[in-house]
Nucleic acid binder design. Structure first.
Lengths: 309, 309
DNA sequence: GACTTCCATGCCGGACTAGCATGGCGGGCC
DNA sequence: GGCCCGCCATGCTAGTCCGGCATGGAAGTC
């Protein structure tokens, strides 16, 4: 059923005349007559009594009128709603990010986005790069912030946009012999005790050596020097806040991405690793491939890249 | 916008595929493709992302989906509602009746109607014949019960169906010298004191004489005998219940329609007037002319005529 | 009784629509 | 790595639909 018929019906009901309803609707009387006839056939009932001086709603027509007005109104609301999504006056944005990005980068961007577009409902999920890219590919996320050791990674069905480098650094207790250095080389860390992070290679925080060997295995170009360096792992601590506690207590040192350095506690010192030895991780925004970014995703990307520059 | 497009949209959204949605909807894939394209043009936004393995709702499409389902659902409800009105599963019936009909005839019929069709909302208004016929003509009432002294009256824009005769009778106090009679002639009432009813001729309850003279003035056939009878009016009492009180107290007698006789109090006796002297009023059902009766009005008419026979 | 008003309808030209066949694109399988 | 398959888009065509014009029928008005 064409909703234009409903508009005609409502107008005719208001004016109680086919002829009078024709002009404002831009039709002739005969068109109105036929449209009402078509509508009556569609709903299976006479909607108007034809009187000598016009028409009047039947009881069936009266019952239909409220529905017709509701339907046309709802359709108008639907189009307005779509418009709102396009202009960021509504809709939602489903974000995902790796833990280190959740420390400062993403929260700041979300805050700015909320200020700019308060009507958009923002949700976010923390996850690992592989999980996040899968979610983006599956359409469960509109945009994810991921990190890889690879400077030009490829994920099926995912479009990546480089946001920034995230150089590796070492976290030391205040007062450590290397705490005052501008840069630390792996050789400097020989003999240190290590606090290990998660087991997954792509998220590993134990050292550039593992990153290096992983990248060798993948046969990719290797900008990291091979070293004979073998870390001694004393503790495996998953939680970043807990890891800081172990470092602060002098139980060992650990590798952290610079992105997380801003959120470090005062009794821990962060010193960059020599980039020539430990290639920086790259941070990307991931969106579904072959699909236009939603208006909200595009706006969020804009906010992400602006401060990142 | 054709709501068929919305059905297609919902089905495609559910199946995430144009091809898969085509068969259950009875279309080919190309028709679906074009219909979605038309819908997207109508709402001014892409509703689906086209992927290699099918399609997926965009954010705009997701915003639209709820509306589309609501609209199609509401339309289904609208058609069901109309069907309900036709089958007396809903809708309303606006009745009107003259006071004497409201005493027994109409309440009984309404009660029976309610039992048979509880979903129909029945309203009723009491009024005089002229008011009621005007309301029927204006479409404010679906059906009215009216009474006239004329056996074949004509009202513009109103269709009448005869329900019954309503012979006149005289109300007497218990113990009155005429209380035991089967029928009373006007001559028998000479010398009685009279309780007058309303002033309007068509509703007059003062006597057959006035009815007779009125009908003479209209030049219609006169089945009522001319008499020299002149009533002596002692009291003018509008309210029927009060009038009964005056009669019961022996303050006078009054004319009442037989329709009202059933509702008389025990200390009042009703005796029919000789129909040859006082022509019965006729009771009609009035419906709008040139218009099919609503299902509810037709059903009510059926109830009215069945017990009236 | 002629005129006016209002809705219904036969006819026709233009627009729309669905189906068919085909093309382009990408994924999956051998 | 090449071939095949699945999916959506589109040019083309026949059938349908739809609106306007002109007219007819019914009823009210002067």
């Amino acid at each position: 059923m064409d909703t234009a018929l409903l508009e005609v019906f409502v107008e005719v009901a208001r004016r109680e005349s086919f002829t009078a309803a024709a002009a404002p609707l831009g039709y002739t009387q005969s068109a109105i007559s036929r449209q009402i006839a078509a509508l009556e056939a569609a709903v299976g009932a006479m909607l108007f009594d034809r009187l000598p001086r016009g028409v009047r709603l039947t009881e069936e027509g009266r019952a239909f009128l409220g529905h017709a007005e509701a339907v046309t109104g709802r359709l108008r609301a639907a189009v307005a709603d779509i418009r709102a999504v396009r202009t960021l006056g509504g809709g939602r944005l489903r974000l995902g990010a790796i833990p280190t990005a959740e420390m400062a980068l993403v929260p700041k961007a979300i805050a700015a986005f909320r200020r700019a577009h308060p009507a958009v409902a923002v949700t976010h999920a923390e996850g690992l790069t592989r999980t996040l890219t899968a979610a983006v590919r599956a359409g469960d996320l509109d945009l994810a912030i991921i990190g890889t050791p690879d400077a030009a990674p490829v994920f099926d069905g995912v479009r990546l946009r480089r946001l920034m480098d995230d150089p590796l650094a070492v976290a030391l207790p205040v007062g450590h012999r290397l705490a005052g250095r501008d840069v630390v080389r792996l050789a400097d860390l020989a003999g240190e005790n290590w606090i290990a992070g998660q087991a997954r290679p792509e998220e590993t925080l134990i050292a550039g050596v593992r990153i290096a060997s992983e990248r060798d295995a993948e046969g990719q170009d290797d900008r990291t020097q091979h070293t004979a360096f073998q870390p001694v792992i004393d503790f495996v601590v998953l939680e970043w806040a807990a890891k800081q506690g172990f470092v602060a207590a002098g139980l060992g040192v650990t590798i952290i991405p610079s992105l997380a350095a801003a959120a470090v506690r005062p009794d821990v010192v962060v010193v960059p690793l020599d980039p020539a030895e430990a290639a920086p991780r790259s941070v990307f925004a991931a969106t579904p491939e072959g699909v236009a970014d939603s208006a909200a995703a595009a706006a969020f990307l804009e906010l992400l890249t602006a401060p990142a520059r």
